[in-house]
Design a protein around this nucleic acid. Sequence first.
DNA 1: GGGTAAGTTTACGTTAACGTAAACGTTATG
DNA 2: CATAACGTTTACGTTAACGTAAACTTACCC
Lengths: 129, 129
Amino acid sequence: MNPTRRTYSIGELAREFDITTRTIRFYEDQGLLAPGRRGQTRVYSPADRVTLMLVLRGKRLGFSLAESRQLIEMYQPEGNEKQLQALLDKIRQRRQQLARQLEDIATMQRELDEAESRCVNAMQELETP
Amino acid sequence: MNPTRRTYSIGELAREFDITTRTIRFYEDQGLLAPGRRGQTRVYSPADRVTLMLVLRGKRLGFSLAESRQLIEMYQPEGNEKQLQALLDKIRQRRQQLARQLEDIATMQRELDEAESRCVNAMQELETP
DNA sequence: GGGTAAGTTTACGTTAACGTAAACGTTATG
DNA sequence: CATAACGTTTACGTTAACGTAAACTTACCC
């Protein structure tokens, strides 16, 4: 009957994702999260948890919180024609950026391979003088 | 006879990469660049230019300048056994991180596809009430 | 020789993303 | 009932990565 029965405390989420509760509250301050309340205490739904994961993934890719907020907005497309168009544009920009990051990663992986080779070589030259 | 004849001024590099000269000097301050000098004036070699590209690529992937500095150090492996081992460890860590970023990007690309679908749907529902 | 375009150093200012600490409520546990 | 273990708000502090501005030198142009 209740599709989202489980809830989370701020401490649980902090432990799960290895961040501080301060960070989670800060994200709420920035409008990235909007948990429920039981009295004073924050209560996080599974959806809130997913949102948090989204933000942290964005961080790993070098996104700012403002950019992550845009990503979150993409999950619930609303507004008039103009706003939806703007959203589509943002989606395409993100795709462009991700494509570029893929290139960058590929390049960097090759360079790491080379760096490892040089490193191993340098070690062998130390062993056999 | 001279393998690296060409040089660059700070302004040239700034224009090419669409950054400010302040940024380039800041990177030097942080030990990421070490250009030559002709009198007072900084003179950048092709190698300096490559280093700069490396830093900027790192930035696009969300690396800090400290991390980029480590990447640069990987280009000239030196030191004793212990230092080289440490370098190898760092290389492996970076590879791990890049692998994770690849996953993140793949996931995010799928989500962007879905977001675009929802967006297009929302627009069509506006057109046909 | 007066401008202007590029370079220089020095130094204070700013923004994002939290850290840290104080001061306080609420459960629950020995 | 005291003392952890968790939660809360409020507020000042910190770090990275530059921005901005002042005050100056050097080179070139007309």
